[in-house]
């Protein structure tokens, strides 16, 4: 039920309208708690002097979402077959309405995604945000970086032109030089003793199903840990992350660790 805040009287007509507009939200909240969950996730305490550098993670997430959306649409028109792949790329670029734009977004967005991952990583390193209790989130981030590079490697083959073909051969053979299992990894990647008809569809499947799925799942974990552990204060900050301006009375619900954990690290201005 939508209620007007105490101490403010509202036009009853307006209150009625508001209640009607909010009814679906209340309906959903009552049955799922999703609205409260979303608010809990979005409206969080952050350090007072949070810097613009701390938006790089969201920027990376945005770049990934752009890749996901444009990739899904490109998959409508792309054909992962050695005889048709290059022609379908030419068709997307030259014939299909707005195809040049969406393919361009995907092609350049890929570089943006990789660059932003590195910038985000640099920010985390320079802010010391990888330290206790956030080591696990650094490890997940490194896995995300590796998977993102895997996306770049598998996606590079898909245009199926000379650059793609030979660059992928070089990439596969770099994998092949890994000690002990390298030759097996190379042969698995190319689906046989040499690049053949299955290599392209295998890379396509890895590129659009396996790797994005893994990245999506790890992003979920990554964000959960950000939510649980809070945003790090910048190194120059005089206050700890999430700390109130006036000392709040000690909570008795045993959940301080979930809301304001950063005071425990002892590394951020306490």
């Amino acid at each position: 039920m939508a209620t007007t805040p105490a101490g403010r009287t509202k036009n009853p007509r307006r209150a009625q309208l508001e209640a009607a507009a909010l009814y679906p939200v209340d309906w959903l909240e009552e049955r799922s708690g999703l609205v409260g969950g979303l608010k809990y996730f979005l409206f969080r305490k952050v350090p007072r002097d949070t810097s613009w550098a701390q938006t790089l993670g969201s920027a990376t997430l945005t770049a990934f979402l752009v890749q996901a959306v444009t990739g899904v649409v490109l998959a409508f028109y792309y054909k992962p077959d050695p005889d048709k792949a290059y022609d379908s790329i030419v068709h997307i670029t030259n014939d299909i309405t707005l195809g040049w734009l969406v393919r361009g977004m995907h092609r350049w967005g890929a570089s943006v995604f990789i660059i932003l991952m590195f910038l985000h990583m640099a920010r985390v390193f320079l802010f010391g945000a990888y330290k206790y209790p956030r080591e696990l989130n650094w490890i997940i981030g490194v896995l995300l970086l590796a998977l993102g590079m895997g996306e770049g490697f598998t996606g590079y083959l898909l245009p199926w032109d000379q650059t793609a073909y030979w660059a992928t051969i070089v990439g596969i053979n770099i994998n092949g030089t890994a000690p002990f299992l390298g030759p097996f990894i190379a042969q698995f990647l190319q689906g046989g003793a040499s690049i053949g008809e299955d290599t392209l569809s295998k890379f396509y499947s890895l590129h659009m199903l396996v790797l994005p799925g893994a990245i999506g799942g790890l992003i979920g974990l990554h964000l959960y840990l950000v939510m649980r552990l809070g945003v790090t204060s910048p190194p120059w900050s005089p206050t700890a992350a999430g700390q109130d301006r006036v000392e709040a009375p000690a909570s008795t619900n045993g959940r301080e660790g979930l809301v304001r954990p950063s005071g425990r690290g002892g590394s951020n201005g306490e």
Partner: peptide, 8 residues
């Protein structure tokens, strides 16, 4: 030698 991957 037996056939090896390039780079090995």
């Amino acid at each position: 030698y037996g056939r090896a991957v390039p780079g090995v």
